[in-house]
Amino acid sequence: MIMDKDTVERMADIAHMYISEEEKNRISKELSFLLECFDKLNQVDTEGVMPTIHPITDRNILREDVVWESLPIEEVLKNSPDKDNRFFRVPRIIEE
């Protein structure tokens, strides 16, 4: 299986991430090789085998919905690169 440069670029776009031409070449080469390794798994007969969704737990973990104190807003906003008062600032998202 080959992962060509166009596919690498398409995946990078889906993942919202620019990559350089050099990265594209390198990643395409390395992942094509890796996908070939993954093909080895086709040798395994998994007919009728249930997938492992979780390594240990096989039940849902539920808890009471309890109110507790959350972090102060200024603490939460502390790491934001752009904030205004009580809000995260982002570029305009609604087109005119």
Partner: peptide
Amino acid sequence: VKRRIILGTY
């Protein structure tokens, strides 16, 4: 990291 994100997305 980008390599793994691209692989995972694929």
